[in-house]
């Protein structure tokens, strides 16, 4: 165990480097995924057949063809067709488009789930379609979509563990190095806990967003109240 700890100490720069790649891919990938989700989620609701059809084809393509295939598509195929890109770019594109396509369905579904009365009241007040979407529908759909987006975000974080396939040195690859320096259970136990903590931090952040979004709709407590210290008893009575 002592040997393990000193080996871990020695391996810390590598683990940090790997984690840097994992976090970079997660942040950039989810940023792209969010943009893709909103753009294609809105396009998938368009009344113009061509726009809607295009969105559907893109969404179904990226949902239907496996993340790993897409990763290789950007890493091996596009360069052969003349589009050179770094492995990081290939990874960000694959994660952004794949999870963005799933996210587009979440966005589309959440918008459709805003009660009909809200659309009708906006029409009765003569609000323009753009104004209605921006000020009335999206703020309500946002609260609905956060839990699903959180799931996708965690999936994306976990999905980045395959980027060793395209030569990137991420946390998972670093763990393999650590395994050789220490032992299997120590290295992977440590690594799984790291991933768990990362996922947990993301979930806490998304939960905070959800509390805030719901509070703005007049549901539940404010973020400040939710984060304030209370005895377990008090919390129990809130729930």
């Amino acid at each position: 165990m002592n040997d393990d700890l000193s080996a871990l100490w020695a391996a810390i720069p590598q683990v940090l480097e790997g984690m840097g790649i994992t976090v970079t891919l997660t942040v950039l990938g989810s940023a792209l995924a969010f943009v893709v989700a909103v753009v294609f989620g809105l396009m998938a609701r368009s009344r113009t057949l061509v726009v809607r059809g295009f969105a559907r084809v893109v969404i179904e393509f990226f949902r239907g063809t496996s993340l790993v295939v897409q990763l290789y598509l950007f890493f091996f195929v596009l360069p052969q067709l003349g589009w050179e890109m770094s492995p990081i770019t290939a990874g960000v594109l694959a994660f952004g488009l794949n999870y963005g396509a799933y996210g587009a369905e979440v966005v589309r579904g959440s918008i459709a789930a805003v009660p009909a009365g809200q659309w009708e009241a906006s029409t009765a007040l003569s609000l323009s379609p753009v104004h209605r979407m921006r000020r009335i529908i999206i703020p309500q759909a946002w609260a609905l979509m956060i839990p699903s987006l959180n799931n996708l975000l965690i999936q994306l974080l976990k999905g980045t563990a395959i980027v060793g396939f395209i030569t990137l040195f991420d946390l998972t690859v670093a763990l393999d190095k650590l395994r050789i320096a220490t032992d299997l259970f120590f290295a992977y136990g440590f690594g799984l806990v790291l991933y768990f903590v990362l996922a947990y931090i993301l979930t806490l952040g998304m939960n905070a967003l959800e509390v805030r979004a719901k509070h703005r709709l007049g549901q539940g407590e404010s973020l400040r109240e939710a984060l304030s210290f209370r005895t377990p008893d008090a919390r129990g009575s809130v729930a």
């Binding site: 009765a124 609000l127 709709l217």
Partner: peptide, 27 residues
Amino acid sequence: IGMVFQQFNLFPNMTVMENLIEAPVHV
């Protein structure tokens, strides 16, 4: 034309005053 609905359909993401001024200001 204005309409009042059976289910009120106030905008939950806005305060009472924001509900009242949204359309007068923007429309």
